[in-house]
Design a protein around this nucleic acid. Sequence first.
RNA 1: GCGCCGCUAGCUCAAUUGGCAGAGCAACUGACUCUUAAUCAGUAGGUUCUAGGUUCGAUUCCUAGGCGGCGCACCA
Length: 510
Amino acid sequence: MTEEASQILRVRREKLESLREQGVAPFAYRFDRSHTTSEAKDAFLAAEASKDMDEDGYGEHVRVPGRILSWRSHGKSAFAHIEDGDGRIQLYFRLNQLGEASFERLDLLDPGDWIGVTGPVFRTRTGEVTVRVEEWELLSKSLRPLPLGKEEVDEETGERVVHSGFADPEARYRQRYADLAVHPEVRERFRVRSRLVSSLRRFLDDQGYLEVETPILQPLYGGAAARPFVTHHNALDTRLYLRIADELYLKRLIVGGYERVYEIGKDFRNEGIDRSHNPEFTMLEFYQAFADYRQMMSLVESLLRSVIHDTCRTTEIRYQGTAIDFAPDFRRLPFVPALNEALGVELDDLDDEELRARAARITDEDLGGAGRGRLLDKLFGAHVEPELVQPTFVVDYPVELSPLAKPHREDPKLTERFELFVAGREIANAFSELNDPIDQRERFEAQAKLREAGDDESHPIDEDYLRAMEYGMPPTGGVGIGIDRLVMLVTDSASIRDVILFPILRPEEG
RNA sequence: GCGCCGCUAGCUCAAUUGGCAGAGCAACUGACUCUUAAUCAGUAGGUUCUAGGUUCGAUUCCUAGGCGGCGCACCA
């Protein structure tokens, strides 16, 4: 439908014109608020408790702005609800209170409009704390109807029930502003996200960590197995990549002499989109000099316990119907024995071709170019990961899987690495960082061979990173934690799109 | 990338075998000075995602495309 043809939009513009003709500016510059909606209600309750009201039961005069949510007109009176950043309050308009001109102008208001009202607070016959409006002014005219549902409160449970609300998932993601405007619970979910990130910062700051920022645009990408986004810098006429991980730059800072650094920021991976993957996502990485992966495991455990308790007021959460408890010591599960058990064979007895055959059974992907590491990872992902519901550290990954991790001090075929799984999903990835530049070069070269064989997610060789390591890197423990997935857990969200304000969608037109 | 499902009024959804495209809410007009999914009476509102095709006739059937959801695969 064209906008000209929509009577609903036309009517609102006509109201706008009527207001202007009456000398009302439909888009105000400011409103001096005395109380938020919640503060106005609290102030009245306090006045009621201390009998600090006039003989007719009216409390303090308030000036409250808000967005109109609902309207119930009764001829010479009307009720409405408005909402602001921390709640809602009912308004009561009366002809003999407002005067004819002001009262009749109410006809030009709609749900969605922002108004500011002035008047005393009282309690209606049905008990609701309400502002008796003596003056009102328009703060902003809404020219497009918000998809507000109708709400009732279930008398038995006391819960809000919304009728014919805003349900279309595509529209809710594309028009997040409307989704937020009509869904207080969505606004709350993103407040939880914000609280969680604050809590992470607080925890790491308290541990003596320094928050830093490293490049997003990089001449060479690395630190994870993924395909990058590619872009071009005009002035330098050079190819740049959007980072797929912060890792290599943060470890350069450890070489530089900072002992504890962290970064919270976006990584970008040019891969598929599904309910646990968005092409840009938020990652926390932190590195600590002189620590090994065992120390980092303990740190991750206390970090998560602390942050989840800060955010949820409990360490036992429910995710998609399953109780998950962060209070007990996290289980520790060695990679190779776990996979041996799941497959019913000894991995050491299988050559690459047998592994490839087994991996081919669980995927239709072309594994022709995949090395032994990728094959093991595939098998582990299919057979073990889904079972890891309660917080579980998978430890001691095969060396082929971990080109940036130190060899295991007791078994050279393994690395000192752990991943944390919760609800079948990877939440954290960490290791004793490889700090031997000669070994690191060999690992890069092995990765380069994989690339030549067709594995396009393998690392390119980063000579500058090797140079940094040659100057001398202390033993270091490093951790990466996917923030979006952590937020999914604490907000019981099934899709990553529900915890990203503006998730990636295909463009609407074109 | 593959499979399944969906797209109809501002929102939520109907539409029989292929036969005039409907309802509730929102909007508009009127009544109503303590209502709260307010109520009552009335009115208006449509490129049925797009482009083709079959047909006397397509929201419905066919083909192609677009966008989304879910599942599988991949990735964190």
